[in-house]
Computed example of a mutant assay.
Amino acid sequence: MRVSVPHIPQASLLAKPTGTNYTRVEAVEKLCRFIRGGRTTVLTGAGVSVDSGIRAYRGPDGRYMNPNYKPIFYHELVDESDKGHHFRLRSYLGYPPVRDAQPNTTHFALASLLHNGDIAGIITQNVDGLHQKSLRQGAKQSWPDSRLKESILELHGTLHRVHCARGHVVDRGVFQDMLSQTNPRWFEFAQELERRNSQPRTNPDGDIAIEHLGISYQDFIVPTCPTCISEGHHNSIHKPEVVFFGESIKNEVKERSYQDIESTEQLLLIGTTVATYSAFRLVKHALELKKPVMILNTGPTRADILPNIKKVDMASGSVLVDVAKFVIGNAGVNDPILADMLSRGAVNPPSPDDDDRPPRAAG
């Protein structure tokens, strides 16, 4: 099976940089003016989670930080051979760092804008659940799951739920416990990595590279789905509710994403190179509908060569809290929930000198 890895076209990589000469004050002003200009939907990517310690796929030049990077493909993850067990082990070991990651200042800034009604909603390509976590931590009871689902669309799914090959859904924490109980040696190995603070680098999709550790994965056991057992079936094929490369987005999610673009007045892209077509087509759809589009991202994006797009070439963590404070105004001081959210957020980016590790290092 041949599945291509999303990339930024060469024309975009070689395009003349735009938005690179703004000062920080100018960038904040332009973003404030844009958000105040109309009902705004925000499209986010891996760049917004970098300050939470989750490394993005691409560097400031728009290219994969590991030129040999190859993500987990769907057909590999569900393979019933040893290869499938290998990738399911990688997912087991790679989930805890994502589970334990904390929302950063960008997440809380967007949460405050959403809570105050200054942005209409968020479409995120991220599967880490940090947008939802920021609202649960900051606004608590006022953001139940139903409201979160209405306001945040997870374009590529979530790592926090797992389903078996027959469609039975289980909470990821419960599934992790099932794997730990079935694989005590691997549980101890994961605990030892945590004790030594030597967790291998984590990808935004919860994958890690383990080949360099020189360990065998053939004894890793995936437990049978308990619901399948109760129905008289034996099924040990599980996968996170993530749209892996080579897998299609559900029709209802695709339709909802188009509806979100059609119902908004403008689109703001944050921390994304828009390399995946599922996101790029939303940008094109917004432009076709004559809606203003602005990008806040470090480095080139796939959308840079499209006409009528404004761009601020900066990391969101450096400007977005100030943007939220200016847009929200006095409520950001007088409302205790907003004041709390605007003062919170992790700033814990991966070390810039953390070299890639072969053969499938994160990037």
Rank of each mutant, 00 (worst) to 15 (best):
Gly329Cys: 06
Thr20Leu: 01
Lys239Ala: 11
Ala275Thr: 12
Glu247Pro: 03
Tyr69Val: 14
Arg185Thr: 13
Glu252Tyr: 06
Ala111Glu: 03
Val253Ser: 05
Asp354Ser: 14
Asp145Phe: 03
Arg2Cys: 10
Leu282Glu: 09
Trp143Gly: 08
Thr20Met: 04
Ser146Tyr: 07
Lys310Cys: 14
Phe108Lys: 07
Leu159Glu: 02
Arg256Glu: 08
Arg136Thr: 09
Asp177Pro: 00
Pro97Arg: 04
Trp143Gln: 04
Gln102His: 01
Leu130Asn: 05
Asn126Thr: 07
Val174Phe: 04
His160Glu: 02
Leu268Gln: 07
Asp51Asn: 14
Thr23Phe: 03
Glu262Lys: 10
Ala109Gly: 07
Phe326Ser: 15
Ala303Leu: 00
Phe73Asp: 09
Thr301Glu: 03
Ile328Lys: 09
Lys30Arg: 15
Val347Thr: 12
Thr40Ile: 02
Ile123Glu: 02
Leu110Pro: 06
Arg63Val: 10
Asp353Lys: 07
Leu320Asn: 09
Glu26Asp: 14
His115Tyr: 08
Pro6Gly: 12
Met65Tyr: 01
Arg195Gly: 05
Lys140Glu: 14
His233Pro: 01
Asp51Pro: 06
Trp186Cys: 01
Glu252Asp: 13
Gln191Leu: 07
Gly121Arg: 11
Phe220Gln: 00
Cys228Val: 00
Gly121Trp: 08
Arg195Val: 02
Pro336Tyr: 12
Ile309Asp: 04
Leu338Asn: 13
Gly332Asp: 06
Gln181Ile: 06
Leu113Val: 15
Ala101Asp: 02
Gln137Lys: 01
Ile261Met: 05
Gly84Leu: 03
Gln181Gly: 05
Gly214Ile: 12
Asn334Trp: 06
Ala101Lys: 02
Cys228Ala: 01
Ser81Trp: 03
Leu213Pro: 00
Met65Asn: 09
Phe280Met: 13
Pro71Arg: 13
Val274Glu: 12
Leu13His: 05
Ala111Ser: 12
Gly206Val: 07
Ala56Thr: 11
Gly129Gln: 03
Ile35Pro: 11
Ile309Gly: 04
Lys290His: 15
Asp356Ser: 12
Thr105Asn: 12
Asn183Thr: 10
Phe189Leu: 04
Leu110Val: 11
Pro223Trp: 00
Gln141Lys: 15
Cys225Arg: 01
Ala27Tyr: 10
Glu188Tyr: 01
Asn104Cys: 07
Asp100Gly: 00
Arg344Tyr: 03
Glu29Ser: 15
Asp171Arg: 08
Leu320Asp: 10
Glu26Val: 09
Gly214His: 13
Leu289Ser: 10
Leu268Met: 14
Asp205Gly: 03
Ala111Trp: 03
Asn183Trp: 06
Ala120Trp: 12
Asn66His: 08
Ile229Gly: 01
Met341Arg: 05
Ala315Asn: 14
Leu110Met: 11
Pro204Cys: 09
Glu188Asn: 06
Asp322Cys: 14
Lys250Asp: 14
Val169Arg: 08
Pro67Gln: 11
Ser81Pro: 08
Ser112Gly: 07
Ser134Met: 00
Thr202Pro: 05
Asp79Phe: 10
Glu192Pro: 00
His131Cys: 04
Leu153Asn: 04
Ser230Phe: 02
Leu13Val: 01
Thr276Trp: 03
Asp79Met: 05
Val347Trp: 10
